Amino acid sequence: MKNLLIILFLIASIQITSAQETAIYEKYGVTVGTLQPGLEVGESVKNFKGKDQNNKTYSLDDALKNGPVVVNFFRGSWCPYCVKHLINVQDSLSMIEAKGATFIAVTPENQERFTALAEKKGFTFEMVEDKKMDIMNSFEVTFDVNDGYQNMLKKYENDLTKTNAIKKAALPVPATFIISQDGKIIARHYDPNYKVRMSVKDILNTLESI
């Protein structure tokens, strides 16, 4: 009887934790059943290509020939947390590049919108349009946006079915992956809470350890 009660208690605890996590994720706009787990440290990354803010084709493989690459996924120019993080990166970009690395920001937002952001904020790192969400899916950071969050964004005149290049209400977890020249992930920050990002300090510390 005692063992049975312990088992029932554990099951109930797991169910409560799961329900709490679901509620938290939904707060961040995540349709929980669609949330991808993100690639792990040690996994290899596939090459990807995309058009940047200067309408040039970016290739991850080409970038890795010159050194490590920091890949950041940002939700769009409409997200103040994304913009603040990218401003912090730009302010310290010379230090990242001094480590022999490059920084790239990948977004599902259409090129016209993030190009306007780059020009306004003076971003000199490359920003790449994930036109069909192929990059997001290859890093396993994609999720469908729930109706409640979509409706909230529309109040601020942002309809993801119009501002995303693929015309679909899907977003990436605002994750950051640091990739070594052999194409393997050596560090990652993955958190569905869009208010939390990998700090520039952590990026630099990782690059220093290579």
Rank of each mutant, 00 (worst) to 15 (best):
I104A: 13
D91W: 00
Y28V: 02
F177N: 02
K27L: 11
A169M: 08
K27E: 13
G29Y: 03
T107R: 01
E40H: 13
Y25F: 15
N47Y: 07
R197G: 10
V70S: 07
V106M: 07
M133C: 10
Y194E: 04
K154Q: 07
N47S: 09
R197V: 08
Q90R: 07
E26Y: 10
I179W: 00
D134S: 15
S59K: 10
K120G: 04
A105Q: 00
F123S: 00
D91R: 12
Q15I: 14
F139Q: 00
Y156C: 00
F73H: 06
T163A: 03
Q111H: 06
F114H: 13
W78V: 07
S18Q: 13
M198G: 07
F74P: 03
V45I: 13
Y156V: 04
K121Y: 11
P68W: 00
C82A: 12
D130H: 09
T161A: 10
K167Q: 14
M198I: 06
K2D: 10
K167V: 07
C79I: 08
E140R: 14
G148A: 14
K2I: 11
Y81A: 10
C79Q: 07
A169H: 03
S199T: 14
L35H: 02
V32K: 08
V45R: 04
G122I: 07
T176C: 04
L204S: 05
E21T: 12
V83E: 06
N137Q: 14
M198W: 03
V106K: 05
M198Y: 05
K131L: 06
K154R: 14
K154M: 10
Q111S: 11
K56E: 14
G50M: 08
T115M: 01
T161K: 12
V41W: 05
I186Q: 08
S199A: 09
Y81C: 09
P192L: 10
V173S: 05
N47Q: 08
M136R: 07
K195V: 12
V89F: 07
Y190F: 15
N47L: 11
G67R: 04
T107W: 03
K27V: 04
N193E: 13
I166T: 12
P192I: 03
E97R: 06
V141Y: 02
G38H: 09
Y25G: 03
F125P: 04
E21Y: 06
